[in-house]
Nucleic acid binder design. Structure first.
Length: 839
RNA sequence: GCGGACGUGGCGAAAUUGGUAGACGCACGGGACUUAAAAUCCCCUGGCUGAAAAGCCGUGCGGGUUCGAGUCCCGCCGUCCGCACCA
């Protein structure tokens, strides 16, 4: 009588054994080929969510599979532990951010262990451990020495709610990425990392990333935003000059105005003694930056009365405008307007009645007159452009740049959209920037023997702002250089710095340096990195930069940190709501709603509830499912199995009750097979084939991270075994099945493996060997088509000669009927696949 | 606006290089076992016509290439994502 698989008992037992034996601790000195499998480490919010479960299950399957394939696998876990939520908790609940964070870590570690991830816990750390951030401070000082860090007074994005500075990457639609508050511009002295020094490298390096999604590479490419063009000077009628940048120097003879940003030095100078200009500039700055606002915003200009002299014609004067569509922080904050071939310039020219002259032919249109309100930006030959006439655009660009350079009024330049990375944050819960400000010596690095600069414990969060700055003693220190009175830097580093090198520290974490070069290089680059696409730009770009910076400093000979990247989809769930006041929706959690047909009913009072869209699980819509109780109910393997089933991993996975139940049923089916294993005699060739095709297919699917396909293949195999009569083949298939499911459902696999008399762990077992001879069928089904439509199938020996297949097809009863005596015009035979008879 | 991805049954999805569309799972329906239920097992399930055999249609829409198109080409429509007054 088959027993039931007791998941709770088995989970606990095997998790304890893995832990006790340190089964998944990676050995640096192993002779085996190494593989580094990493999932993006979590922020310790206190609870794991389904997204974590999906993410870590994927990585775990790959890590366990590679172990079985004989590799030494590094599969570590840690905590991205600095950041705002800890401070918010401190403000709301009066707990210390550190205490709150470490408590959360303990809770989440236990939850992760409960799902049976094969992680190397010996390498665990949190970025808020002084051992970690102290080494980060050392790396920061290395960068200071290497000239990759500078301090600059600059206008920054200020989040008035979080009371801190945000990087450009953290401003979304003019709002703070975390608080959602409208970002203000403020002038502050900030520390910057010279990521722009690496702009070219970071762009070119994308080409080497063969195992990254194209989508992510494209997003980074756009973010880095390389533009090549000409930077040149116009002489201005006030005796000065104004510099502009353009990617279209070829259109220089189509210019009809020069436009400068409201913050441009020339505009500021004019505004200083002309209130009208000042008022206009103010109006420009007030303009919104959100998508909708930009879309609808009118092009506005203020004619300064100044004129600029065209570089190719001293008699050609162009009016100089201050314009709201010119941005100070891109290029040089000034452009020359060519209305015929740029939409914004055309809008502007039509509004202010400026000349619009065609300088690129559009089909037959070559005349200077340009009509309509749509600028022409397509290909063509230069016209109405003196010495450029007849040239293609690319040649004309080159010709103009050449002239500008030889005549000395301009030069070919590259402009980047990417800015340097501002890393100063006016927060407590982050890595202190190891700098001391001295009145006489300036900004002095903290001496290495004084690292780590530790955060003070006695801080208060009862008022907004930075507690470090308010702390009575912490910031008062003597200058390391002159010994005079000095002040610690009270800003901390952006938490993205913490996550820019944690994967290196996982590979090697000595006590006295950030990492050991030789050991780190044994593991790096990460072979497979898995995480959410939301990090496509920020984290992944910063980590790439950091790694390249380390290489430039000679600390690590690795250019790209992540050889393979996979961005997994989200876990989603239906939403449930009722319309509240003022069109505001009142959301209901899944366990507050009963579904009958299409309609939802509130469990509490039986009132109707609308079933809304399937969306990413989120607190705000209350459509979350807590993994904890689910694991207790169904066991870790069922949850893991469901996470891998059905949806391709890059797409969203909809959580459903029936889905997890299906997974649980499958685990029980597996158990019935394992538990009912009985030896028998006889060969079952078809089952042998199915088994070996599955072994090979599942291996390929896991390596390709196509877990849904691996799952489907396992269902097929299990179906086949269940249907098969007792035989030696069947017994062998069940024994092999234990190993094939082991990476995905490790607990039941260990349990069955032990029950079958194996003393070693299945986690240490080898992946079953494939017999290549069994991968090919000896019979094939050949489709027979008449005029491309399937009419019959033939079963023939694999590799049957073409003529033989053709003859068999033509003599098949159904085909004879279909042809009805007509002789075929043509017969196409695809060996082992199909015959198409054209009648 | 620019860039990208995607569109296949009631649902999640499979489908080497262009070669039998819908594997596998979920859900639905029917049946077996059971006093009954749960659990389990078996069968059916793209649409239309048909008692059946079988036939016709079918991968967002319209064209095209081909012996043959879910797959390739052209043009639309829709959904989602990223960027955004970037000169």
């Amino acid at each position: 009588m088959a027993s039931r698989f007791n998941a709770l008992k088995a989970d606990a037992a095997w998790q304890a054994i893995w832990e006790e034996r340190r089964t998944f601790a990676a050995r640096d000195d192993s002779p085996r080929p190494k593989s580094y499998v990493l999932e993006m480490f979590p922020y310790p919010s206190g609870k794991i969510h389904m997204g974590h479960v999906r993410n870590y299950t994927m990585g775990d399957v790959l890590a366990r599979f590679r172990r079985m394939k004989g590799m030494e696998v590094l599969h570590p876990m840690g905590w991205d532990a600095f950041g705002m939520p800890a401070e918010n908790a401190a403000m709301e609940k009066g707990v210390h951010p550190g205490a709150w964070t470490y408590q959360n870590i303990d809770a989440m570690r236990a939850q992760l262990k409960r799902i049976g991830f094969g992680l190397d816990w010996t390498r665990e750390f949190a970025t808020c451990d002084p051992e970690y951030y102290g080494q980060e401070q050392a790396l920061f000082l290395d960068m200071v020495e290497a000239g990759l860090v500078y301090r600059k007074e600059s206008a920054v994005n200020w989040d008035p709610v979080d009371m801190t500075v945000l990087a450009n990457e953290q401003v979304i639609d003019g709002k703070g990425w975390r608080s959602g508050a409208t970002v203000e511009r403020r002038k502050l002295s900030q520390w910057f990392l010279k990521i722009t020094d690496f702009a070219d490298e970071l762009l070119d390096g994308l080409g080497e990333l063969k195992h990254w999604p194209d989508k992510v590479k494209l997003m980074q490419e756009n973010w880095i935003g390389k533009s090549q063009g000409l930077q040149f000077r116009f002489s201005v009628s006030d005796g000065g000059s104004v510099e502009v940048f353009t990617t279209r120097p070829d259109t220089i003879f189509g210019a009809s105005f020069v436009a400068i940003a409201a913050d441009h030095p020339l505009a500021l100078r004019l505004a200083a003694d002309n209130p009208e200009v000042a008022a206009f500039a103010e109006k420009c700055r007030a303009g919104g930056t959100s998508a909708a606002e930009i879309e609808t915003q009118e092009k506005l200009g203020y004619n300064t009365g100044l004129t600029a002299t065209h570089p190719f014609d001293p008699d050609w004067q162009l009016p100089v405008y201050i314009a709201n569509f010119v941005l100070m922080d891109y290029g040089v904050g000034a452009v020359f307007g060519v209305p015929a071939h740029d939409q914004r310039d055309l809008d502007f020219a039509r509004k202010y009645d400026l000349p619009v002259k065609r300088v690129v032919s559009e089909g037959d249109a070559v005349a200077p007159e340009f009509t309509g309100d749509e600028a022409y930006t397509g290909p063509g030959k230069l016209v109405n452009s003196q010495f450029l006439d007849g040239l293609e655009i690319a040649d004309a660009k080159r010709a103009v740049i050449e002239r500008a350079e030889s005549e000395g009024w301009g030069k070919g330049t590259t402009v980047w959209r990417l800015r340097d990375w501002g890393v100063s944050r006016q927060r407590y819960w982050g890595t202190p920037i190891p700098i001391i400000h001295c009145g006489t010596c300036g900004a002095v690095p903290v001496p290495r023997d004084q690292l780590p600069v530790k955060l003070p414990e006695d801080v208060s969060f009862d008022v907004p702002g930075n507690p470090l700055d308010r702390h009575p003693t912490w910031k008062h220190v003597p200058c390391p250089k002159c010994g005079g009175e000095a002040r610690r830097e009270t800003d901390t580093l952006d938490t993205f710095v913490d996550s820019s090198w944690y994967f290196i520290r996982f590979a090697s974490q000595p006590g006295d340096t950030p990492f050991d070069k030789r050991i780190a290089e044994q593991w790096l680059p990460v072979n497979q990195y898995i995480g959410g696409v939301e990090h496509a730009i920020l984290h992944l770009l910063y980590a790439r930069f950091w790694t390249r910076a380390l290489r430039e400093m000679g600390k690590l000979d690795i250019a790209e940190p992540f050889a393979g990247l996979f961005t997994q989809g989200m876990v989603t769930h239906e939403t449930y709501y009722r319309e509240g006041d003022e069109g505001r929706r009142i959301w209901f959690a899944p366990d507050e709603v009963r579904i009958s047909g299409e309609q939802g009913i509130a469990i509490t009072d039986g009132s109707p509830i609308t079933v809304g869209r399937v969306e990413k699980m989120s607190k705000s819509k209350k459509n979350t499912v807590d993994p904890g109780p689910i694991v207790e109910q169904y066991g870790a393997d069922a949850v893991r199995w469901f996470m891998l089933s059905d949806s391709p991993p890059e797409r969203d996975l909809e959580w459903s009750e029936s889905g997890i139940e299906g997974a649980w049923r499958f685990i029980q089916r597996l158990w019935r097979l394992f538990d009912g294993l009985a030896d028998a005699d006889g060969e079952d060739k078809a089952l042998d084939r199915k088994l070996h095709q599955t072994i090979a297919g599942v291996a390929d699917d896991i390596e390709a991270l196509s877990f849904n396909k691996a799952v489907a293949k396992l269902y097929e195999l299990v179906n086949a075994i269940e249907k098969a009569k007792p035989s030696a083949s069947r017994a062998a298939a069940i024994r092999a099945l234990v190993r094939i499911v082991a990476p995905m459902a490790p607990h039941i696999a260990e349990e069955a493996w032990a029950a079958m008399g194996n003393s070693a762990l299945i986690a240490d077992a080898e992946w079953p060997e494939v017999d290549p001879a069994l991968l090919v069928e000896d019979e094939v089904t050949i489709a027979v088509q008449v005029n491309g439509k399937l009419r019959d199938t033939l079963i023939m020996a694999k590799g049957t000669a073409k003529d033989e297949v053709e003859a068999a097809a033509l003599s098949a009863d159904k085909i004879v009927q279909w042809l009805d005596g007509a002789s075929p015009k043509k017969v196409i035979v695809v060996p082992d696949r199909l015959v198409n008879i054209v009648a």
